[in-house]
């Protein structure tokens, strides 16, 4: 495909404009990652002689187990956040005043810090928490906080991140979609059909991008799994912070190895995600080309 020269110079200008910001990010993150890598390999010890050692990476089984927990948490939270976020956005777009209220309420949860939200979820869902008390402490109240399914953690992430997903979808497809759904309605489409055949195809790219952001965020997030999850096994983030803060200074390289594993997993997911979104974007462009 040949690109017109005007477009090429425009993209070069865009690149130049972004360069200072990109350079700063690359320098800061690059330096941080380099430091982490050096520390994980035994250089830059807190005390004593620096010497090369791969000891911190030797406990592969624990790293893999933690990565597994992290991936499970991120996948479950992202899936739930995408479904709920999409439903909120679809409702907000089609339900008039009520929809705007739901959109406003959902947007209002965005500034709440995850730590505060985790505390609130803990108070609500704990064994003797608010919900259990309101229900009169029933025998069969499920164990949600600190359980082996990480239920409270996933709920916390899904709640907070669904608001973010809804915001991105609303911003991504905007008001024109309301007209499209109205047209579809006049042509006799049911609510279900409008959602699945009008809104969902349009929202696919924003959903993909938001899903990627949510996935990477929950993968690296520490507060909710630490506060609401069981003591063991632990996700990468919790393991990294525990080892970094350990009174045993020789566990710092291991903390760095854990953090770097988390970075590697996140980068792999971002790469895969970008590939898929690009393909899906190309496909939707091709489809719209056929229909017009």
């Amino acid at each position: 495909m040949s690109v017109p020269s005007g477009q090429r110079s425009a993209s070069r200008r865009a690149l130049l404009t972004a360069a200072p910001a990109v350079l700063l990010v690359v320098l800061v993150i690059g330096a941080a990652l380099l430091t982490a890598l050096l520390q994980s390999l035994g250089f830059l010890p807190v005390f004593g002689e620096a010497r090369f050692s791969t000891e911190a990476w030797a406990d592969g089984a624990s790293l893999l187990e933690s990565a597994g927990v992290s991936l499970y948490l991120a996948t479950a939270s992202t899936a739930l956040a995408l479904v709920v976020g999409f439903l909120v956005a679809a409702y907000a777009l089609t339900a008039g005043r009520g929809g705007r209220l739901v959109a406003a309420l959902s947007a209002a949860t965005i500034p709440i810090p995850h730590l505060v939200a985790s505390g609130a979820i803990g108070l609500l869902l704990a064994d003797a928490g608010f919900l259990a008390r309101v229900l009169g402490m029933p025998e069969g109240f499920p164990q949600l906080v600190g359980d082996s399914w990480w239920a409270a953690v996933i709920l916390e992430f899904a709640w907070k991140e669904s608001a973010f997903v809804a915001l991105v979808v609303l911003g991504g497809i905007g008001r024109p979609v309301a007209e499209l759904t109205e047209t579809a309605a006049t042509l006799g489409a049911s609510a279900r059909q409008r959602m699945l055949h009008v809104i969902l195809p349009l929202a696919r790219v924003p959903l993909g991008v938001a899903g990627l952001v949510v996935f990477v965020y929950t993968l690296g997030s520490y507060e909710a799994p630490w506060l609401l999850g069981p003591v063991a096994p632990e996700p990468l983030s919790v393991r990294a912070v525990r080892l970094f803060g350990s009174v045993d200074l020789s566990s710092r390289p291991e903390a760095m190895a854990t953090a770097l594993t988390s970075v590697a997993v996140a980068l792999a997911v971002i790469g895969l995600g970008l590939l898929l979104t690009r393909r899906s974007r190309r496909r939707s462009r091709a489809q719209s080309g056929v229909s017009s």
Partner: peptide, 20 residues
């Protein structure tokens, strides 16, 4: 001005690297 904006980021990076 654009060049000037790059300078602080370079400085920040150098600072971090020297910290290492």
């Amino acid at each position: 001005q654009k060049h000037l904006m790059i300078l602080p980021s370079l400085a920040a990076g150098a600072l971090l690297l020297s910290a290492c």
